[in-house]
């Protein structure tokens, strides 16, 4: 069993639904995006292409972030999810240096979106995040535990995200990767990401 995600770049329209539904689900502080959207332009007028790339933790099969963690706070679950135990994290940020994708964040101090103080929502959601620790996407483990897909997958209005077991060759994600030439980001780094992309 190895959870993985497939993002169909043909379907993605860069609506930011993933980035914002992730924020709503996880109550991440300002500047922290477990899921985010990158935009890039290629070519010259008029043969120009706009490329949209939604990114998140790749939940690598061989995660360099876990390797370098001095306390064992960063760990990989049996089903392939890379997560952080905030109680064990000492905030040394070695993992952030080790992650070649830049998908880890340091929560240095309590933050909220309005200068006036945290909203009732943030008191519930954002205040749960410990400070002085590193934080990141964990494929919404707690949603998975109750049979729901990660928030960014369940919400994507263009239905561009798929989630499933990469170890099962018959799963939707495995079939999509095989049939449509799915690829991970920077395979040359040898981290074996569990997030794949389908060509636009």
């Amino acid at each position: 069993m190895r959870w993985g995600m497939v993002i169909d770049l043909k379907r993605c329209i860069a609506c930011y639904g993933c980035q914002l539904s992730c924020k709503a689900e996880n109550g991440t502080p300002p500047g922290v995006f477990f899921a985010r959207l990158l935009k890039h332009e290629e070519g010259q007028f008029p043969t120009v292409r706009q490329l949209f790339l939604p990114v998140l933790c790749n939940h690598c099969e061989e995660p360099p972030c876990v390797e370098v963690c001095p306390t064992g706070a960063s760990f990989k679950t049996e089903d392939g999810i890379v997560d952080i135990d905030p109680d064990m994290c000492v905030g040394c940020r070695s993992c952030m240096m080790a992650c070649p994708y830049g998908n880890r964040y340091f929560n240095d101090k309590p933050q909220h979106y309005f200068p006036d103080g945290p909203t009732p929502y943030e008191e519930r959601r954002t205040a749960r995040h410990q400070t002085d620790v590193v934080m990141k996407c964990n494929f919404c483990r707690d949603r998975l535990a109750v049979g729901k897909e990660p928030a960014c997958v369940a919400n994507c209005p263009a239905v561009a995200r798929y989630f499933g077991d990469l170890d099962d060759p018959n799963s939707e994600v495995s079939r999509l990767i095989k049939d449509r030439g799915g690829f991970p980001l920077h395979p040359e780094l040898g981290t074996k990401p569990s997030v794949y992309y389908l060509p636009a």
């Binding site: 609506c15 639904g17 914002l20 539904s21 924020k23 909203t119 369940a154 209005p157």
Partner: peptide, 21 residues
């Protein structure tokens, strides 16, 4: 209408509601 999925604005409605302004 939406079939269970929302754009970024829709999921962010929480922060419009709780805006102290």
């Amino acid at each position: 209408i939406g079939k269970g999925r929302l754009c970024g604005k829709g999921v962010s409605g929480i922060m419009t509601h709780y805006d102290p302004n």
